[in-house]
């Protein structure tokens, strides 16, 4: 008799394609050989595991799926599911590694923008489902800072994400929100974009940023330190206007906390 833990490990190994169903329980005889046999019955679960997770990835990366077509997407997603199965039950959190996995496929190299587009779709997905955090307005932030301090810590809303691409991925994403007959051509020579994705009033959208603003927000997302973020941005563009950008972040409701660091 197999201990339950061992039985469950073998089941998972079959689902992930690391063990044949015929081998998994053959020695222990623990699955009843009702016709059409234990392996065929196990295959029902294996099929469900793979199919439903491929569908979940398709729901999270719909534009990637349209760009590469169903057949390629299903094959790629299947390989991803087997190599990086979900670790947690909330499927809106599944697919973190899918953009990098796509980049590793030799076949995907012909679509240079595919990986960046996948990163954009992942950022949109995470922004949709990020935890709800109350936002601060500028007056409330000012009231929190009573004493003069060396620096401020700016905490951004968990929905905030950055995506940078050498391709116009925002435009590619937008035209693929239409039906197949209505997809407008995209000028791939139009240049790259630096996007700031966030959720505001329940809706996910993005702003196009210049290099300095992109560095500023990236630095805030990394450690929250305003002084450091400002210095980085000014090194790129001496005319960088931090107060104006901060004001638009407050207006967008994406500042969650402001703390004085002494």
């Amino acid at each position: 008799m197999l201990p339950l833990r061992e039985l469950q490990s073998r089941f998972a190994a079959v689902a992930a394609g690391r063990l044949l169903a015929e081998q998994a329980f053959a020695d222990s005889g623990c699955v009843v050989e009702d016709a059409p046999g234990a392996a065929a019955r196990l295959a029902i679960h294996v099929h469900h595991f793979r199919l439903t997770l491929i569908e979940a990835l398709g729901a999270t990366f719909p534009v990637v799926r349209r760009l590469v077509g169903d057949a390629f997407f299903t094959a790629a997603a299947r390989r991803y599911v087997l190599s990086q199965p979900p670790q947690r039950p909330c499927l809106f959190e599944y697919g973190d590694g899918f953009p990098a996995f796509l980049a590793s496929l030799p076949e995907a190299g012909s679509l240079g923008y595919l990986t960046d587009l996948a990163r954009l779709e992942w950022a949109i997905n995470r922004a949709h489902h990020a935890d709800d955090v109350p936002s601060l307005d500028a007056a409330a932030a000012a009231a929190q800072i009573e004493a003069p301090s060396c620096d401020l810590f700016i905490g951004l809303d968990p929905s905030c994400r950055l995506v940078k691409s050498a391709w116009p991925v925002d435009r590619i994403w937008q035209v693929h929100q239409q039906g197949d007959d209505e997809i407008a051509p995209v000028d791939l020579e139009a240049g790259g974009v630096q996007l700031f994705i966030h959720r505001q009033d329940g809706e996910v959208g993005w702003l196009k940023l210049d290099a300095a603003a992109f560095a500023f927000i990236g630095s805030l997302l990394a450690d929250g330190r305003l002084g450091k973020a400002n210095a980085l941005a000014r090194a790129i563009a001496p005319s960088f206007n931090a107060p104006a950008l901060l004001e638009s972040l407050f207006e967008g409701g994406v500042v969650a906390s402001v703390t004085a660091i002494n």
Binding site: P3, L4, Q8, F11, A12, A15, P85, P86, Q87
Partner: peptide, 22 residues
């Protein structure tokens, strides 16, 4: 049912042996 083992979530309601251990 069960769905988690060895850090994997199998996205299915998998059957258990009905034993004293289970």
């Amino acid at each position: 049912a069960w769905s988690v083992v060895d850090g994997m979530y199998l996205n299915d309601l998998l059957p258990l042996p009905y034993s004293e251990e289970s």
